[in-house]
Design a protein around this nucleic acid. Structure first.
Lengths: 206, 206
DNA sequence: TAGATTGTTAATCGATTAACAATC
DNA sequence: TAGATTGTTAATCGATTAACAATC
């Protein structure tokens, strides 16, 4: 089984399944079914069973899925057994909010460094992180063996910063800049752009 | 033509097309083709032509699409001719970053109010906005005829806050809380959860 | 006119769902 | 045992792509 045997659209749903069952666990629930999970998430029970069956047999006929077990399996599949260190590029409002955000840790990630090019910001602290000079970024990231980064610069610097991250060995980039960026085949990019989400919805307004 | 004749997946791509051609316009370009646009966005030329053809004929054989014209048409289709006022719920780091964010305006939205329940925050200013008491939210939003809101509360308050927004007449919600929320059929919800994006990518790491 | 590119149809591809035997 | 629910297959549904006549 290579990574590419499984459609990306299936992989994209696994984190949603994980989030939902972790919440169920928090609420003290021990077992769930594809039906219950599907209702919570607004997807069909058949789809959940089919998705999970791509990776193994995690349920039991008649009773459903043990939540702790399924949670552990999903974390294993998604490479979330440890915690991935992340770099943040850009110490504006978005980068700052990301540096403060406490929610990553429980879900397998933590920001360990933040970079900016503004000399007025370099050296200041954002939460627990001191802003570092972007001029040294490539070397520092490579040294620390960081594989995950979040880009929170203005659009017109995003590609340049991305090139440096790739050069430094980063393999997964979460891009907050409202622009498409180009990377080699072995690097993944995901996008977060609130305005595009809002525009999707405004179509249906009025 | 009702709104539901056109697949949501097509609507979801229009903002990306718009973003790309607005950038082209900014760079002084006057005309583009489905091929060029597709290369920029990593989608096929055929898909772009097919998507656009759902709404009309915007191009010219032999030459392509006039950027200003296509941009205006997309804005019209997406209901972006004016500026939609938005409410922000939750004045933590995320709400605060959203309140400061200058990028919405050019893309058809602006935050005009922010609410929190913390009496220590109520009355303080975040950018141009004074934090208001969430206890008065429903009334204030209804009064102002606000149709769009962003939820930036902790997960365990997101549903409660959503119910109030719906009650106040909001029809589009961008939810930053890492939890699925339930709304009536005539209300749209989009989700932003950086951790799920990161988890999608970690599957491919190592 | 020759070259380029659209809008659209038909073919292909892929994803979702329904159904059910297996079995806890 | 009877009831419930899985994992999986086949059928359905929907989205993408290829191809090309129309035409700028």
């Amino acid at each position: 089984m290579t990574k590419h045997d499984i459609p990306g659209i299936v992989i994209g749903r696994l984190p949603l399944y994980l989030r939902a069952i972790q919440r169920m666990a928090q609420e003290g629930q021990r077992v769930t079914s594809s039906q219950e999970l599907g209702e919570r998430l607004g997807v069909s029970a058949a789809q959940i069973r089919k998705d999970l069956s791509q990776f193994g047999e995690f349920g039991k006929q008649g009773t459903g899925y043990n939540i702790k077990y399924l949670s552990a399996q999903l974390r294993r599949i998604l490479n979330l057994d440890g915690v991935w260190d992340m770099a943040i590029v850009g110490a504006g409002d978005v980068g700052s909010a990301l540096a403060h955000y406490q929610g990553f840790r429980d879900r397998g990630f933590q920001a360990t460094m933040i970079f900016d090019k503004d000399s007025g910001k370099i050296g200041t602290k954002i939460g627990a992180l001191a802003v570092q000079d972007i001029a040294n970024m490539t070397e520092i990231i490579r040294q620390a063996n960081i594989k995950v980064a979040m880009v929170a610069t203005p659009a017109d610097h995003a590609q340049e910063v991305t090139d440096q991250l790739v050069e430094a060995g980063v393999k997964a980039i979460l891009n907050y800049a409202p622009i498409q960026i180009t990377v080699p085949d072995d690097v993944r990019v995901e996008y977060i752009d609130p305005a595009t989400h809002l525009q999707k919805m405004s179509y249906y307004l009025e």
